[in-house]
């Protein structure tokens, strides 16, 4: 599912650029965005509604910082799942409430046998391990190998950045 920048129009791109750092915390944020991109607040709302409906925007809302909220033991769980079942099982794992990202990625044999990544959030490593067990139960016989890779240090983290 690769889209090029050229596939979204200039106004959509301008709205994404103007809101990527967050909506302004003022009483009428869409008016403020409109001032930046040259539209009325109502037009910004309508555009964002259309972007939601079209899937360009997945959701609009508060983006919590898991670490600051005490979810310190986030584990990247990685799985080697048989190719014929990955689609069905990936959707089940992606729907779990403690999973924030779930992707199919390529294997790099022999160094890297895993083809599914699921980011699991927990307050302790014990909690992450028990969530991983729940995933193992869902995967049943289709899983050949798995691992939990914990983060040690965040060396750089910035949000999506595009220029307008």
């Amino acid at each position: 599912m690769k889209a090029d920048v050229s596939k979204i129009d200039a106004t959509t791109r301008a709205i994404i650029a103007a809101t990527q750092g967050g909506l302004p915390l003022t009483a009428q944020p869409y008016d403020a965005v409109g001032d930046v991109v040259g539209l009325s607040g109502a037009e910004v709302q309508a555009r964002m509604q259309a972007m939601l409906a079209g899937g360009v925007i997945r959701r609009i809302g508060a983006v919590p910082n898991h670490y600051k909220l005490g979810f310190n033991a986030n584990g990247m769980t990685v799985w080697d799942i048989s190719d014929e079942h990955i689609s069905e099982l990936g959707q089940k794992v992606g729907a779990l409430e403690f999973v924030s990202h779930c992707y199919h990625r390529p294997r790099h044999l022999p160094h890297w046998p895993y083809n599914m990544f699921a980011m699991v959030h927990g307050k302790t490593r014990e909690e992450v391990k028990s969530h991983a067990k729940e995933i193992t139960a869902i995967l049943g016989n289709s899983v050949n190998a798995s691992d939990i890779i914990y983060s040690k240090r965040i060396l750089k983290k910035t949000g999506l950045r595009i220029s307008s």
């Binding site: 690769k2 967050g22 972007m51 959701r59 508060a62 983006v63």
Partner: peptide, 27 residues
């Protein structure tokens, strides 16, 4: 507004905004 501002200042939320589908504005 005050509560959201405080959450952003103490970083319990990183922002209030749109979550854009991966691959929409680049690869």
């Amino acid at each position: 507004l005050e509560d959201f501002t405080r959450h952003i200042e103490n970083k319990t939320i990183s922002r209030i905004g749109a979550v854009v589908r991966p691959g929409t504005v680049g690869v």
